[in-house]
Amino acid sequence: MAALSHHHLSSTAPFAFQQAPPQNHSGEPTQHAFYPYTDNGGSTLGISGKTFTVIAGDTRSTSGYNINTRYAPKLYPIGGQGPTHKGSKIVLSVVGFAADGRALQERLDTVVKMYRYQHGCEISVKACAQRLSHILYNKRFFPYYVQAILGGIDEETGEGALYSYDPVGSYEREYCRAAGAAASLIMPFLDNQVNLKNQYEPAAVSGFDKKQLVPQPLERPQVEELVRDAFTSAVERHIEVGDGLQMMFITKEGIEEVYFPLKKD
């Protein structure tokens, strides 16, 4: 979706029938700029549980006020066997500039597959997460224009593992994270409902004695409902989010995909 944008400094048309190049009022030649990025909108989120991680994203792709397609997945299984990623237990979600997201997915997928050929075993999520950070940082000065979330199962504990990234590779393991166009809408909701922020034990102790509720790992039905709520809310108030909700549940068994239609307006 790269856009070639013309920055006209003159009021004349960008094309000319005369021989001389178009002039602006100051007499300098008209300048053209190439901006290689587009924001394709959409939102993603990830939540890790006791035995699973869920990564979710809407399927709408936009440029400006235009909807390119109502089904453009932002969720990619990484590794596994062949082009179907059979047996994969890692999911990458990317939101931002879709072409960069796709390129990033290809790079990471290749790296993860190469890892298995070289080491004879599947890569751990922890290692994959580190590797993704390096891939992003390698393009520190012409970044992949994406916010990535990586989900899998922590081999050491069997718990869900979730990592979130900025476009140049800063990353962190978290329990939940929203990214993309509606991240600012979804994130405080997740803070409240997953990490129980601003919720205290109801024992009516006030002031400094009050005790924060301790977040407990959520069960899958609760998580699925939270994800749906988060996205239906985002769809109401953000025009770049909608059409469909794609969820991938990663367990030690593998990846289970769930699709849920969202409003198409």
């Binding site: 509606a182 600012s184 809408l185 979804i186 994130m187 405080p188 909701f189 803070d191 409240n192 409902q193 922020k197 601003n198 919720q199 709520d229 988060a230 809310s233 985002a234 109401e236 108030r237």
Partner: peptide, 30 residues
């Protein structure tokens, strides 16, 4: 985001207080 996620119709005063408080507090924390 928080209001759209937490609000529901016909809340009684006490429940409305809890809802608006959680909506505001969690929103301003971000």
């Amino acid at each position: 985001g928080t209001c759209e996620g937490l609000w529901e119709p016909d809340l009684e005063p006490d429940d409305l207080f809890e809802t608006i408080s959680q909506a505001l507090l969690n929103a301003v924390d971000r």
